[in-house]
Structures are given as structure tokens and as C-alpha cells.
Design a protein around this nucleic acid. Structure first.
Lengths: 319, 319
DNA sequence: TCAAAAGTGTTATCCTTACACCCATGT
DNA sequence: ACATGGGTGTAAGGATAACACTTTTGA
């Protein structure tokens, strides 16, 4: 008896930043019957030798976006349960990818024709945006909801384990908020039935009263959460942030981009010192056209760091 | 036209430690015609819902080893090129896993019957063992070999790029050795044709004069290198090292285990301070039976840290 | 002249690293 | 008594985090 065969699909979380908005490319958005989802493409081993060439090829052909950095995230083997009622149960394995790119106003029209669009990513994960301080919905909706979930199993050991997980993921009581625990937080909300996907999958009986963030198809929001977590970690030890920046930029723009990704506010002087200490950038000599204050000097990424200081990133401090 | 289907295989790097030896479980070892390989099993989506249950199930059924920590490493989509001459070209995707376990003398007989065995992992990656200082084969074989490879493409930009990669991976000139760059190093040796697998795959024409480390089947050594890299990184921020320890252990045994994994020698006092500062262990009150010196106090893992200090690991310092 | 954003200088604190010595047991 | 490994105290240096103020432009 030989092993069954399955189909392989690729899902990409394609990320860009404009201004202070971190963006994620979604398809089937806007008025369509289907909910937003990540771009998806079948992997055809006859045509493409590797996943990465396949992904690059199909995304670039369909959207004309040039993908910079690409990284494999995770492979999910339990997608069978996500089949729609009418469909036959074909086995589907999906490989998740993170890709970084740049975008400008020009792209938007072309993407719309494809039924795709870049959207602010905190629309899907609103509790992850701490740039203006602790989001209110954490105390107003999430923690009360999780607290009910903790009590569902009484007050014994299982309840204590749930409390510990909540504390860890959301930094209740003494623990600090850790912006990298994006996936743990999403999974907790899923298990507690606080995101609508949990009801659709049949994980819980009822849809949540207040929907936490906009839903995505299948487990796409989970893949997206994995991507955010990975990227937030990555910028700390690899200079991938520059894949999201235009060639020339001001230090404030760089800081704004890092803040958009990491979801927290950074201390200006310390951020600049960090960038300087790591020799990540060099001045172009030009000045930015003023945007309402003193004009800022322009910088560019020092490509040499890739050879010099391989693990140069932006270990973000507090505040 | 619909996407082709493929078969999914699971490859596991199953790791244990006894004394000062880091071990990897290999199959088809010892006198068999085939070379050593990682345990492999087809994934049958009809029987197992997830990769992890499938892996756990088949390994535990075949070897009677209890797998502790399990982590997905990477999914390789380009295995088609590894087909044997006679075989039909069936498309095969392989998902690599890292698993940690404990082993004792008792296991060994049972494993032998299965055609499997735990082997010291530096047999496959000898350049990774820096516990007794910089391995001689780096200066005697590897760097001269890589130097030839750099010069293969003249002295232009491409040669400079190769030099930069070597410098980064092996810490030549000023750069320090980074024990986590296991995969980069293996890939460099492969590209330069210094490991025998490169000749077998047809990547280079000739087998290397001196074989660097024992080979494995297909790309198993590459998967293994990925596992070592991941584990070396992981122990720094998650207390997974205890998955490799018996329930009670001395601090020296703990240090020896960390040294076995990380491949470098650690500073005793600082290591102890680190363990204490992170409150990773608590004394059992018992003493170890002396092994030739003063008897050591026994400790056990403080499971509570998993809830208290989620990211408690052993950020290894120098020495 | 005032608002808005750019840009800089300094200090306290903690963590990392290195150093050298004493202790308890078996032979 | 000595060899073997177990176990600790402390000080220097560097990295991190927090502090507040000056500069340059446009309106």
C-alpha cells in the first residue's frame, strides 16, 4: 500500500509599508461574496523546481510586484477540515510564505483589476497596534472574553493553565507585552472563540458577539499572524526592513516603518543611535523636501553591512 | 488544467545527548549498502490529520522512543532531482522536523533491530565541534578548499562575493565564529564541492579528495544541518535543553549537554549564574553519587518557568 | 513668532565577561 | 596529602534606557 498523494498550495503574506501603514496584500476583497484571503496558487512540480521560484513567478506575473525578500513560514498539513460543504474532500497541504515588497499609488489600480488590494494589516489584528498606547479593545473585549474562557473549565488545574497562557500572551499582571507573540495571541483568541473563524470551523458553537478584527478565509489569518510574528522578530537581527523602504529615505521615515511593523512606539534618540551604531545607513547628501518642519537629511541603506556585520538588525529597546 | 499531485514525506532529525555526545538517530547504518539517512516516513493524509501526529505515531511505533519537543524545520519542494537512476520521476515534497528525546543503553539493542542507531552528530559535521578549540580541519582542509573555490571565478565581483560568504560563515579574519550558521557552512561546502553529496547530485564533477565528515543519503545532511542550527538557536531563548536531560541532573551535566549541542566550551561560573538568574532549576536536595571528585548537588527543571518567564533560555556568553 | 519636525549630549543602571580562589570527597 | 571535580565573590567595561534641550524650516 503506497501513500496517498495530495495537492500542494502556496499561500503568501505579501507585506509593504506606505507612510505609517503596514500593508498586507489580500484578494477577493471589497464587495465580493468571499471574504478576504491571502493570495494563493497551486504548486505544479512539473513547471517549477522549487516553491520559491513558483511563488515568485506567479505573483510577479499576476500582480507585477517585484518581491524582495522571501521566506518560508510553515507548512500546514491539516487543511482537510477547511473544505466547503459541497466540495469533495481532497487533501491539500499548504505552504505559507512571507514576502516583502514596495508599493506606490500606481500599483493600486492594477491590483484592483486583479481583485487584489493592499490593506492596513491592523484591520485584521487590531490588538497588535500599540503605537498609540495599549489598545482599548484589549481591556474592553479581549481580556473579559478570555476571562470567561478561563472559567469555562472551573477553577482547577486546567483553568490555571489557561490563565498562564493568557498572561503570557497578553502580558497581564507583571509580564510585559511581547510584540512577537502574535501567533500565540491569535491562537488563544481562536481557541476561546473570540474570532469568527472559530465558529466557522466548528471549533466553538457560537459566533462571538463582537468580532475581533476582520476575518479572512480558512486559516489565512493564522498564516498572516505567523508572518507578522516572524517579521517582527526578523527585523531585530537582519536588515530586512530596507526591503520595505524606498532607495532614499529620512531617519524618521525609517523609524515610522519600524514602528508600523513592530506595532510600538520607539524612542527617537535611541533609535537613531541604534541605526548609527550598526552603520546601517549612509547619508546621500540630499535633503528631503520639507513636509511641514525642518527638512530632513536623506539616507540610503549601506549594502556593505550584509558582508560586514551579517546580523545587523534593529534590536528595539523600550518606549 | 489542474495542479499535479505529489507525495509528501516526513524526515525527522531525532536528537538526544548522552554524556558529552550529541546524538542523531540514523537508519540504514553499519555495513548496509545504503548510506546513513534520517528516519523517513510517508505522510498519509487519510490516516493522520497533521504532520506532527503522523511523525510522532510512526516514530514511537517503530522505535519505542518517546519524542519530547517537536518542531517543524522546513519543507523542501525540489526533491525530484534526488531520484535514483532506475526510478520513475515521481514528485516528492519532504517536510523536515526536529525532535528531541532521551536515550539510554537499553534503547540501543532495540534500535539495532530496526536498522537504526544513535550516532555522535559531529561525525557528520566535524567542523562544528569547537569544544576543544578550533578544529584543525578548518585550516587544513576547509579554508584551502574554499579558497580554491573563490579563485575559480577569477578575481572580480563574483570572487569577492564568495570571499564575503566564506568570511561570514567561517569567521575568517576579524569576524567571530557564530555557532548558529550551521546551514550556511554546509551549503558553502556543498557548493564548493567539498562534501561528497555535491558530486553525487551532479553539482560538481569530481568527488572531493578528502571527504569532509560522513555523508548521508540525498539531502539528509542538509536537513540535519538545519536541525542543528535551529536547536543551537532555540536553547538560547526557550528551555528546550531539559528535553534532553534526565529528570535529575547536576549543573555540570547540564553544562556538558549545552556544550555538546552548541559545540563550544562555556565558562563555568557564568553558566551557573545564568542558570540561577533565570531560575531554570531547583535543587532536589539529593547529591549525585561521586564520579571521582566532590559529589555534586542534583537539580531538576523548574517547570513553572514555562508560565513565569516564557522566554527563559540560556543566552550563552563567550568562552 | 509660532508650530512642526529634525537633530544632539549626557548620565544612571544593568548585564556581560573575566578573573582567582576555596570546598568536599575518594584514593 | 593529593587529585578531581564542585562551587562561589567581585570588579571592570560595555550596552541599554531614560532624561531635555537646540535647530531649521514653512506658514
Amino acid at each position: 500500500m503506497t501513500a496517498e498523494t495530495v495537492e500542494i498550495g502556496l499561500n503568501a503574506a505579501i507585506v509593504a509599508v506606505t507612510g505609517a501603514s503596514p500593508l498586507i496584500l489580500v484578494v477577493g476583497a471589497e464587495g465580493a461574496l468571499q471574504r478576504d484571503g491571502l493570495p494563493f496558487g497551486p504548486f505544479d512540480p512539473g513547471r517549477h523546481r522549487t516553491f520559491e521560484t513558483s511563488l515568485r513567478d506567479s505573483v510577479e506575473r499576476q500582480t507585477a510586484l517585484a518581491l524582495g525578500y522571501i521566506e518560508q513560514l510553515y507548512t500546514f498539513g491539516d487543511r482537510g477540515r477547511h473544505r466547503l460543504p459541497g466540495e469533495r474532500a481532497k487533501h491539500m497541504v499548504s505552504v505559507g510564505y512571507l514576502a516583502l515588497t514596495r508599493t506606490d499609488a500606481e500599483d493600486s489600480g492594477r491590483l484592483t483589476e486583479q481583485g487584489a488590494a493592499f490593506r492596513d494589516w491592523y484591520r485584521y489584528l487590531p490588538w497588535e497596534d500599540w503605537r498609540q498606547g495599549r489598545p482599548k479593545l484589549i481591556d474592553e473585549i479581549i481580556l473579559p472574553g478570555l476571562s470567561r474562557w478561563e472559567k469555562e473549565v472551573g477553577t482547577g488545574e486546567r483553568a490555571a493553565a489557561r490563565t498562564a497562557r493568557v498572561r503570557l500572551a497578553f502580558g497581564t499582571s507583571d509580564l510585559p507585552w511581547d510584540e512577537e507573540r502574535v501567533l500565540e495571541r491569535y491562537e488563544l483568541l481562536y481557541e476561546a472563540g473570540l474570532v469568527a473563524e472559530a465558529a466557522e470551523d466548528g471549533h466553538v458553537a457560537e459566533r462571538p458577539e463582537v468580532a475581533l478584527g476582520q476575518t479572512m478565509r480558512h486559516d489565512h489569518r493564522r498564516i498572516f499572524a505567523t508572518a507578522v510574528a516572524r517579521l517582527r522578530g526578523k527585523i531585530k537581527y537582519r536588515p530586512v526592513i530596507f526591503e520595505l523602504m524606498p532607495p532614499d529615505f529620512t531617519l524618521t521615515a525609517l523609524q515610522t516603518t519600524v514602528e508600523a511593523i513592530s506595532g510600538r512606539h520607539l524612542h527617537k534618540q535611541n533609535f537613531r543611535r541604534l541605526v548609527e551604531a550598526n552603520q546601517l545607513v549612509e547619508p546621500t547628501g540630499e535633503m528631503a523636501v520639507a513636509t511641514g518642519g525642518r527638512p530632513a537629511a536623506l539616507f540610503r541603506f549601506r549594502r556593505q553591512v550584509l558582508a560586514e556585520r551579517p546580523s545587523a538588525g534593529l534590536k528595539l529597546g523600550g518606549r
